[in-house]
Design a protein around this nucleic acid. Structure first.
Lengths: 167, 167
DNA sequence: TATTGTTATACTCTATAACTATA
DNA sequence: TATAGTTATAGAGTATAACAATA
C-alpha cells in the first residue's frame, strides 16, 4: 500500500504542479455506504434549511415542533415527542420558548386533566406559514441539484429504508 | 381545522374501535422534505451499523477513523479531520483510544517534524477488515429494503445533493 | 507569519431518574 | 398501577481559545 501525504515527488509532472500537490485520500469505502451518503446529504440540506429559518429565529427543532403543533391543533406534548422522536424532558424547554414568544399556547385538555392541548396563536400560525413557505421553496430550488423526478425517486427510496417496503 | 387527540367520538364507528383510537397526526409537510427523510434514513441505517460494530467495541466515528487510517497509511491527523469533518481537538481522544488498544500507531513524518503519520498495526488492520466486512455486508442485506439498482440510484442522488451536479 | 498537534474549556444535544397530579 | 408533564442532572457530541514546536 502506498503511503499518503508523501507528496508524490512530481506526479506525472505537469498537471497539478500549482503549489499544493493535493494528496488525494482514499475514502472510497465510506463513500460506498448508504448511511455515510445519507448523513452527508442530510447535513448539507439541513445547513440550507438552517439559513432559511435563521431570519425567524428558529432552529430546525423549533420549526418542527411549531409545524407539528400548527398542523395538529390540540396535540399533546407526548404526541409531539412521539412524532418527532424527542424525549419529554427535552421538549419542555422548546415549548416554553415558543410560549414566551407568543407563538404557542396551552389549553386544558377536554377529557384528561393531566394533559394539555398545544395550539399555535395567530402570530404563531403566521410565522409558521412563512417559515414553511421558505423551507418548502428550498426543496424545489436548485441548491438540491435535483429535478422533480429525481426528488420524488429519492424520497421514495429514503422512506423505503426507514419504513420498510410497505411504505 | 380539526382538533387532534379529541378521540373522534366513534370514527365511522366500526373499524378501529379496539381500545386506542389511534389519533393519526398530520406530519405530511415534514415528510415531504428531503432533509427530514434523509436524516431519518441515515439514523435508521446508522442504527444497524452501530449493532454490527458493537462486537468490536467500535462506534461509527471510531470505525471511520480506523478505516481512513487503514486505507491511507501515513495520513496525518489534519487530513483525517478534513476527510471526516472532525475538529482537531476532538480527534485527539479518538486516536489515543485506538492507540491504547494497539490498533493504531504514530510514526514521525518523514519531511515535516511537526506532523506525525498514522498507521494501523497488524491487529488494527485485522479488526478494521472484519468490521468493514460486517458493515459492507449490511449494505446489501435486506434491512435496507433496497435492491442493487435502487441502492445505486439512491447513492447517486445523495451524492448529487452534497457534491453538486458535477459528482 | 502560518501550521501541526495538543490542552483546557464551554456549549449544545441527548438521555436517565425521580417527582406531582391525575387516570 | 400506569401515564402526562415536569425538574434536575448526567453524559455525549461539538465548538472556540490558546499554547509549544516546527515550517
Amino acid at each position: 500500500m502506498p503511503a499518503v501525504d508523501t507528496p508524490q515527488p512530481s506526479p506525472r509532472c505537469g498537471e497539478d504542479a500549482a503549489d499544493a500537490p493535493a494528496p488525494r485520500l482514499d475514502t472510497r469505502f465510506l463513500e460506498s455506504l448508504i448511511g455515510y451518503n445519507a448523513r452527508r446529504a442530510a447535513l448539507a440540506i439541513i445547513g440550507h434549511v438552517l439559513q432559511r429559518l435563521a431570519p425567524f429565529g428558529l432552529r430546525v427543532v423549533d420549526f418542527s415542533v411549531l409545524t407539528v403543533i400548527a398542523h395538529n391543533p390540540g396535540i399533546t406534548s407526548r404526541q409531539v415527542c412521539a412524532a418527532l422522536d424527542i424525549l419529554p424532558p427535552n421538549l419542555v424547554g422548546l415549548v416554553r420558548a415558543l410560549e414566551r414568544r407568543g407563538w404557542v399556547e396551552k389549553r386544558g385538555h377536554p377529557t384528561d386533566r393531566r394533559a394539555q392541548g398545544l395550539y399555535v396563536t395567530p402570530q404563531g400560525a403566521e410565522v409558521q406559514a412563512q417559515a414553511q413557505a421558505q423551507v418548502g421553496a428550498l426543496e424545489t430550488s436548485d441548491v438540491t441539484h435535483l429535478d422533480a423526478g429525481e426528488r420524488a425517486t429519492l424520497i421514495r427510496l429514503l422512506r423505503k429504508i426507514y419504513l420498510g417496503p410497505d411504505a
